[in-house]
Nucleic acid binder design. Structure first.
Lengths: 263, 263
DNA sequence: GAGTGGTCTAGACCACCAC
DNA sequence: TGGTGGTCTAGACCACTCT
């Protein structure tokens, strides 16, 4: 039977620890020791009930603990599986270096090429509206200044990995390719530079939290996977904020790498 | 009664959406619209059962959804409360700049001073052992080279906020203050520089995930709060890796800020 | 159709907290 | 002591997946 090799330990009725927690401990231990390896099916709820002699709710509570820890992956009608970690994408701190733009590639497609995946963008919209207060602040604009808002979702090999919303002051973007669905080779940063807004630096503010239900849906997130929220601000050589990009990414698919000066 | 002002909507029996999800939606909405504000108590399970006319398990499933999203905070014997977001600590990318060390302050105490909190370190241990493969790799050492391992937990105003484990090649640390419990003013980076290992740069690799049970305990994490894992490597002017620091932090208490070059 | 997990009921007893 | 959430039982019916 599926994964029944792990059904060796029993409940300690003398223990103060809740039964469902003991069962969760057993299963977590089996995963840690690779008695249950990646992708392997756990014993079914029925099997676990029979083995431990407890009610179904108790088993389900135990399985929920593992789910919340991100250790398992439940598939309705199929079973519970040890989660296989997705390949991690490393985002290096030089990913917005000018040399990439000069090669005509936007950051995302440059990245995708590097790992041999097929990049794709969908749910692309471009509108003009007023910026959220937080964005207006970063761009040094009044709240009622119009900005061009570019929203999109990025996919790799057909799987959604990241949502992004860019805000560009309307006076920089209006009637330029930046306000078009396709901004052309090198992406919007290349267009900004062509217009004389040579980019000097970026700041990135990184937070992590559990996803909202909408984000979970958009990114096909499994339960127990947090998201990174990364807000990047681009500044031109004059020190003006020329773009804010608000991105949300599945945290289990990314490692962010940065260089810090020591001086 | 506590929060009973939110008990206005009812279940739609015609809807395909599970009853517990509908109830979770109602409560989430009430929180989002601030009909339930920060720190306010939600209606009790008994009240919710009576209002919606469902079994307790259904209510508990709904409350679990909010818990998993990090929106609420359950206190046994007291009630369920809208989570108050802790004050966020912003970690700037210049936090390891030499000027801070020159002032005789380690990064953590400099930070604490800035926000007017009382810094504290506990559970401090210093041992000598072999580095994990990942660490050996970053330090450019063979797996069997000894390193000095400094483990500690940082607290602000008595609350644990971060665990950290530093690895320093034994030939740099042995028989120096770095291998002592108290490394002296400016911390271990100041000591490394005194020994001629002037620091040139750091790299930081950031990931986020749900905490292990041990981490949840060490950091007093509430359910639904992910952790940042930040692995920092310090390099001296000769390009040698001189320290790896592996830290785990409650993600809801931090915002990491970085500067990226555009050239 | 057989087996899986998803939802839901209607109870029970317990541990913790505030009064 | 009464109210709160924590754990657990023993059922039921449903939706999904695979064969």
């Amino acid at each position: 039977m599926a994964g029944d090799g792990v059904l060796t330990q029993m409940i300690d009725p003398a223990s103060d620890r809740a039964v469902y927690k003991q069962i969760a401990d057993h299963l977590r231990d089996a995963i840690a020791r690779a008695r249950l390896h990646e992708g392997e099916q756990l014993p079914s709820e029925t099997q676990l009930m029979a083995h431990y002699g407890v009610a179904r709710m108790t088993i389900r509570n135990a399985l929920r603990v593992l789910q919340d820890e991100g250790l398992t992956n439940t598939e309705h009608g199929r079973g519970v599986y040890v989660r296989a970690r997705p390949p991690v994408r490393r985002l290096a701190s030089d990913r917005f270096a000018q040399r990439h733009r000069k090669e005509g590639k936007a950051a995302f497609s440059a990245e995708a090429a590097q790992i041999g995946a097929r990049p794709e963008v969908d749910m692309l919209t471009v509108i003009e509206s007023r910026p959220p207060a937080e964005v207006a602040d970063r761009l040094g604009l009044a709240d009622d200044t119009e900005v061009v808002v570019r929203s999109r979702r990025y996919l790799l090999d057909g799987k959604p990995v990241e949502t992004a919303v860019s805000y560009i002051p309307a006076d920089l973007a209006r009637e330029t390719p930046i306000a078009e669905l396709n901004p052309g080779p090198g992406g919007i940063y290349a267009r900004l530079e062509e217009q004389g807004h040579t980019l000097a630096r970026f700041t990135e503010d990184v937070t992590a939290r559990m996803p909202t239900p909408e984000e979970a849906k958009l990114l096909s997130l499994r339960p127990g996977v947090p998201v990174f929220r990364l807000v990047r601000t681009a500044y031109d050589v004059g020190g003006r904020g020329v773009e804010v990009c608000d991105t949300v990414m599945a945290a289990d698919a990314y490692q962010l790498s940065y260089e810090l000066p020591a001086h």
